[in-house]
Design a binder for these strands. Sequence first.
RNA 1: GCGAGAGUGGCGGAAUCGGCAGACGCCCGAGACUUAAAAUCUCGUGGACCUUUGGUCCGUGCGGGUUCAAGUCCCGCCUCUCGCACCA
Length: 830
Amino acid sequence: MEARYNFKEIEPKWQRRWEAGELYRVTETDSKPKYYCLEMFPYPSGNLHMGHVRNYSIGDVVARFKRMQGYNVLHPMGWDAFGLPAENAAIHRGIPPAEWTWSNINNMRRQLHAMGISYDWEREVATCHLNYYRWTQWLFLQMYHHGLAYRKKAAVNWCPSCATVLANEQVVDGACERCHTDVVPKDLEQWFFRITDYADRLLADLQLLPGWPEKVKIMQDNWIGKSSGAEVVFRLEGSGAEIPVFTTRPDTLYGVTYMVLAPEHPLVAQLAAGTPCEEAVADFVRAARHLSALDRTATEKEKEGVFTGAYAINPVNSERVPVWIANYVLMEYGTGAVMGVPAHDQRDLEFARKYNLPVRVVIQPPGEELDGNTMSAAYVNDGVMVNSGPFNGVPNREGIARVTAHLEVSGTGKARVTYRLRDWLISRQRYWGAPIPMIYCDRCGIVPVPEEDLPVILPEGVEFKPTGESPLTYCPDFVHTTCPCCGNPARRETDTMDTFVCSSWYFLRYTSPHSQEQAFERDKVDYWMNVDQYIGGVEHAILHLMYARFFTKALYDFGLVGIEEPFQNLLTQGMVLKEGSKMSKSKGNVVSPEEIIERYGADTARLFILFAAPPERDLEWSDQGVEGCYRFLNRVWRLVAAYADAVRRDSAPLAVTTHTERELWRLLHITIKRVTEDIEQRFNFNTAISAIMELVNGCYRYQDTVPAGEQNLPLMGTVLKKMVTLLAPFAPHIAEELWQGLGGRESVHLETWPGYDPQALATPEVTLVVQINGKVRDRMQLPAGLPPAEVERLVLQRDKVVDMLAGQQVVKVIVVPDKLVNVVARKKCI
RNA sequence: GCGAGAGUGGCGGAAUCGGCAGACGCCCGAGACUUAAAAUCUCGUGGACCUUUGGUCCGUGCGGGUUCAAGUCCCGCCUCUCGCACCA
């Protein structure tokens, strides 16, 4: 073996050999248990960043570890390749999106190769490839045929900068998730997926996912926002028009003193028509519509409203209540109308006080008398119903069900469940995406493209005009087609699909990536799914992870897959920080993976990023930390190099005799245990690596303490070989080279993961900590496994202990076997 | 405001079931090797105090509590990060 660790030579060498030897190719087999390890595929921005390096390093440890444990591991990689940046590059630099994207993919694929990640590249997919997006389109058609894809006109979120609409999930604090431009409402007819049909299952099945972080499940739970209550129908005085409201508190229905509509509510215009309020109402609506989504929803914003001049009738007591419109009512939630119960709702109380509306207490807390005229905070807790006609004296919890039942009997309301979740808007007015395979025919209406006509090919050479309409609109060859039903001229849909549609099923495509006949082959899906371990950033906690769950459930219902949840276990990795904040070009704190690999090699980069913090936590980048890992690999190299030749030639049988040898042997087995458990049970790669470091330190200690001629070569050989196999998932190239240096013939990555011998963990002697009154006072070397009574006797005999206990009386002695003794003593009373 | 997570040396972090706080690494210091430097190796490295070999006390955000024993469990706060936020 060479004396020097030359990563520049060995890393490319092994990458080539692994690829040539098809080391990471997999096919279905019954001879091993399967394991599907998946990292979120990247958007091909052009270069890997440290977040990718972290994501894929973590995944590679899992994949290599499972492989060594005898699993048939599927570990694929691909590209989430549709999306806006490609189109923006086209606009700003004149490069066609396809060309830009493919060249980025080529560069990033090269970078991933240089990382030495063990992918089965044979299964690579790119969502912008015809052979992929034709199936995205096919899946859209399945959604359509099952009534889950539909078109409707709605107030949608429009990002003026991206010149397209966005799904609710892609709006953060009223701004575009991508470019942070304020989103404006726009009335447009768009395609939606009926994800709300799955709201209950998406919520309930979170319980099927014990392997997901609680945090992510809570976020999805909040996002779905299920709330149970009742729909109560108020009627307008005069016209008798129905205004349903949603409430979670039907028990407070007798406390309604007014009602409020959202400014966008369809009844608003006709309510005020002809009343003295007409003008004021119109002004108010105009002003509200003008506000951005962010301003509209700001909590601090004062509640404002205006009386419409109309009155509605409370169905339970026939009371006449004024109808207002107000800025705090959202058209998107519930029915867009709420009943005002100021005594028992803080928002309503604030509103009522501002506009001098009456406050009527209908829930009386135990042992307290509320006064509607003076109360300054709404009473929202439990109590007994009062001023509530036949329900007086009913505990309010019980009242919820009883009032609801009463409404149902009288036909003025019913129990209802409402969700915050909205249907998924998937239309995008952009070019670089999968065209929605629909046709508009003047005679036949909306007609789906027949499956045999797929794919609807995204045309090349399209002009990009930033008009707010899809560039495909200006591509006559694309737009003009014939109706599949009647054969007359017809128009194609020109919007493309949200890229999250593409990424909602890619994990299925990996199981049969080359299938020409199907999106995925059922038997392959049945073999590989679920994904056993999914790894990615927490920023996808709602978006991608909920869409993918929705797709899986829909496909299950279509009979296309046999599983209802795609990802069995989820690991959300933390961010990579530099100087305490996320790496970003604007902050100028970006560390380029390519430079690190160039300087220290991929193994060092991987090792550092795994060593510096546990995966879920944010990781602070440290150049010195990288140096440290590089030093460690050099240290490992020198150690192995010092013994490699001798170990290779040595054929003596292994025998462990001296105390020092037994210590080294024991350290080896402790290390195997620690590394195995740290990877398998806790994903704590940082402590796994530190365990290997300790083993290496132990080897050096042995080398230093035992004279060269007396060193146990078979022992050292065994220890080093095992150490190299433990290192293999973390630093695959150097491990391979060292393995070969130690005489390994096959790849170290085909080795079986080492097991430990529980007997080797046993030690003849233990260091017993002696505490007196909970403070460490002494240590004793004792034979392991002594009975507690014997330990107690020995401790109490010990000179030092006797001295320290002088004048005191032993009250109690606690013995933790082979670990610790605590002598509880107090001053003797004379 | 609601929900979740976190807070441990100069730094990243460890302590897995209540049992030696600070593993491992970085930084820093001392020494060895060297003409010299780099590299490497060895030793030291939480704080305060003491008469030394050695020992004492303090110490895991703050204040209480449970316990023979608390970074870990309980109660009450503080700070930070993330998510949601007029959701009727």
